[in-house]
Design a protein around this nucleic acid. Structure first.
Lengths: 257, 257
DNA sequence: CGGTCCATTGACATCTTTCAAGGCTTGTGG
DNA sequence: CCACAAGCCTTGAAAGATGTCAATGGACCG
């Protein structure tokens, strides 16, 4: 465990990065041109967004909140394939054919929807749009790769910790007592994202609470008491940290604390 | 298991689709313009391709053979995050930061390499290039989503079966005895792709052989004896079938048989 | 106040990994 | 052509991890 220490110190840096995310690496903002063509949807929990509409390919841009991409295969249970955060772009043609896919907001938020063809046309004429799409794509692919590694290699506890780290970085607010964030999912959703069983998930959360890493949470909220220690338990913590700095298109945590 | 029958009959259709892949859905061919700017690399097993070169973002286009994208996170073992087949496009900025990533050919093949900036410039001026990139991307995203579901929800046997189906569809040749294809990986590689342990994988392969689904293979080859039965065991078979028809940019199986 | 949904937790069954031994294939050198 | 070494694959037994089932408790809603 020679690298344990290193991970920990890296994680500490992460916490401060978290506190000053507003000045993270300057990124291209979402070009205003897109806003003119998109329909603005206000989302809330329980809704589902039809991925394509009358067979017309559609693009979604997340502006606030979290979207889940769910996939249900025949004779298999549901898998939440990806979480889409603010800034992310989703195209309906990313969905495998013959699979039942759903795009569901995990809580209130804002999503812009437009025809894929319109977005492509915009991209062709406006380099800023192209740049934005490229960046968003790179960011999402990198996260997806990490998620694959998470599902493929990590133990159950590592998976849970990794999600907590990701959510803390994405939507967390720094408080004296730790980093607090919304848990926009119920246990089943989280379990479906991490590829494990709700009971197992519950056990692991209890274990983490006992270990003092996370605090008692009200419904749908979580508080990370010891971020460095938590990050030290996830092999993906450092990459996630880096991505969240790089990819943060609008700072998800204000000076609210 | 009411849907078992259905899956099976679907799978039968798949086999015939397999035999006539050459007339699959007409797809945009790789625009010639790209060839003028790319360096052509002939790959062989054991090589690794440097994802980025002097910090310059790079794009790779697979023309023949299979590429593996490997990710090694600190304190964790290697994960093969994705398989890239003929037609696929990979960009170095898809790699998560602070992660050790390798692009390794799994056998002989051909890869085109160019600067990402050059490819973007081409895409900006040539709509055919844009269209090709969009299609390739949609295809890869769809497969990646299936792979996530595979890792997250499937039992070990289902995972193995799914890979066999995918390889049969991608690189298989129809023979009287079944569908034969190269296994360009050793046991460890396959295990790392499916997120399981080489020993377990070996056991499962033996079980499938005993069940008569696959045949005895020489080193690095496999023969699927009963494709429909195999496909019936993978919840992802139908989507994969559809994708391989849709995404096949150059028919990987000729009338060789 | 009672019902419903969700989370927690224990006991147990199952699946998967680990460790270790042995066999098979491949390549090398006599 | 054969013997030997190295690497990979297979397989058994035991340990460990995770999933399943069922009972309990708590929060929210009417």
């Amino acid at each position: 465990m020679a690298s344990g220490t290193k991970t920990l110190s890296e994680a500490r840096k992460g916490v401060s990065a978290l506190c000053s995310a507003a000045k993270g690496a300057a990124l291209d903002a979402l070009p205003a041109a897109i806003g003119l063509q998109a329909a603005i949807l206000r989302t809330r929990r329980g809704q589902t967004l039809a991925p394509s509409f009358d067979g017309v390919e559609t693009a979604f841009i997340v502006r606030a909140g979290v979207l889940t991409l769910q996939l249900t295969l025949p004779d298999s249970s549901r898998q939440i394939v990806a979480l889409l955060f603010s800034g992310d772009v989703f195209r309906s043609n990313f969905i495998p054919p013959h699979a039942e896919a759903t795009l569901a907001p995990a809580g209130t938020g804002e999503v812009w929807r437009m025809r894929l063809a319109s977005l492509d046309k915009l991209a062709a004429s406006d380099p800023a749009v192209t740049r934005y799409l490229d960046q968003a794509l790179a960011n999402q692919m990198a996260r997806q790769a990490l998620h694959v590694a998470t599902l493929g290699q990590f133990s159950c506890e590592q998976r849970v910790v990794t999600l907590l780290v990701e959510l803390a970085l994405r939507t967390g607010v720094s408080l004296p007592s730790g980093v607090a964030f919304e848990l926009p999912f119920n246990r089943k959703d989280i379990a479906d994202y991490l590829g494990l069983n709700p009971d197992t998930l519950s056990r692991i959360m209890s274990r983490l609470k006992t270990a003092g890493l996370i605090g008692h949470s009200e419904r749908n909220r979580a508080v990370v008491r010891d971020f460095p220690a938590l990050a030290a338990r996830s092999p993906a913590a450092r990459p996630l940290l880096e991505i969240s700095g790089r990819g943060r298109i609008e700072p998800a945590l204000g000076g609210a604390a």
